[in-house]
């Protein structure tokens, strides 16, 4: 197998692995649109990185975190419904990011690779950083598993029971920002949430506990990465979208199975 294909596979698997548990929380907490908004603002992060000559990965994480904190603060105002707010910010930040790209003097940016990923161009160093970040995020989720689940089930109850809700939520935002930063190369900003939401939704059909759903989400995501890369190799289709489409097809197949626990 060609080296670049092996690197692509490794990078994709790393992102899929961490997307399972994180995606489960995105689905349980109904944060899909929230994740989308953060992902769109990642483009702004890349622009900021180029503008201020910071490593794009770092800039993306910082911008996503700022966006997440800003969103949480705005949600508390309750003047606008959350999805309206997200709709405003999601598309404004995407538009701002695109314009910022064009305004950067001298920089020729490959927009398509940012929007839809460029897995074949992934370097060994990038693959390594994907696995390091994935490992860190998985560790954090494992460590905070019970409080994370507790605030997902009932925030007030968790707080009365002594969970530091603000801190745990901030950690969840941090992991989301980190995963967006590493997933950009794989599927691009427009398709990142798909990689979290679709495998988790697929896993729901087979899982009888939250932990099982998180693990099965990773498995479904990793199968989708393998299928997508293979399909892209055989039919010469773009890799990021092929991975997402594979995940979507897996979900369709999973529909054939009746959801467990829904009979009760």
């Amino acid at each position: 197998m060609a080296d670049f294909l092996l690197l692509a596979l490794l990078a994709g698997l790393g992102v899929a692995l961490v997307s399972g548990p994180l995606g489960a929380f995105v689905v349980w907490r109904r944060m899909a649109y929230f994740g989308d908004t953060l992902a769109h603002s990642a483009l702004l992060g890349v622009a900021a990185g180029l503008w201020f000559s910071i490593a794009p990965g770092i800039a993306v994480i910082v911008i996503c975190l700022l966006m997440a904190i800003g969103l949480l603060a705005l949600q508390r105002q309750q003047a606008l419904a959350t999805d309206t707010l997200l709709g405003i910010l999601s598309h404004s930040s995407l538009a701002l990011g695109l314009i910022a790209m064009y305004l950067i003097p001298g920089a020729r940016v490959d927009l398509e690779s940012l929007l839809f990923g460029d897995l074949l161009a992934v370097t060994a160093l990038e693959t390594l950083s994907i696995w390091l970040v994935a490992g860190f995020v998985l560790g954090l989720i494992y460590w905070l598993w019970t409080p994370l689940l507790s605030i997902t089930v009932h925030e007030d109850l968790a707080q009365v029971e002594g969970v530091n809700v603000g801190l745990v939520k901030t950690c969840l935002m941090l992991t989301l920002a980190l995963v967006i930063a590493i997933a950009m190369k794989v599927v691009g900003v427009l398709l990142i949430t798909a990689l979290m939401v679709i495998p988790a939704a697929t896993a729901r059909r087979f899982a009888i506990s939250p932990a099982q759903m998180a693990v099965l989400g990773s498995v479904a995501g990793m199968i989708a990465v393998c299928l997508g890369i293979a399909a892209s190799w055989w039919w010469d289709t773009p890799m990021g979208p092929s991975i997402v489409l594979s995940a979507g097809l897996l979900f369709l197949v999973s529909l054939a199975r009746r959801a467990r626990q829904q009979k009760a």
């Binding site: 689905v27 349980w28 907490r29 109904r30 019970t146 689940l149 507790s150 997902t152 089930v153 009932h154 007030d156 109850l157 968790a158 009365v160 029971e161 988790a200 939704a201 729901r204 899982a207 009888i208 506990s209 939250p210 099982q212 759903m213 467990r260 626990q261 829904q262």
Partner: peptide, 25 residues
């Protein structure tokens, strides 16, 4: 303090059993 909130809404996508719910505490 033991607190019993007014209602509990658990998303159907979360496969949580009663035992699992109690295990959070």
């Amino acid at each position: 303090i033991g607190y019993m909130p007014q209602k509990l809404h658990i998303d159907a996508t979360l496969p949580l059993t009663v035992g699992g719910f109690l295990a959070l505490a």
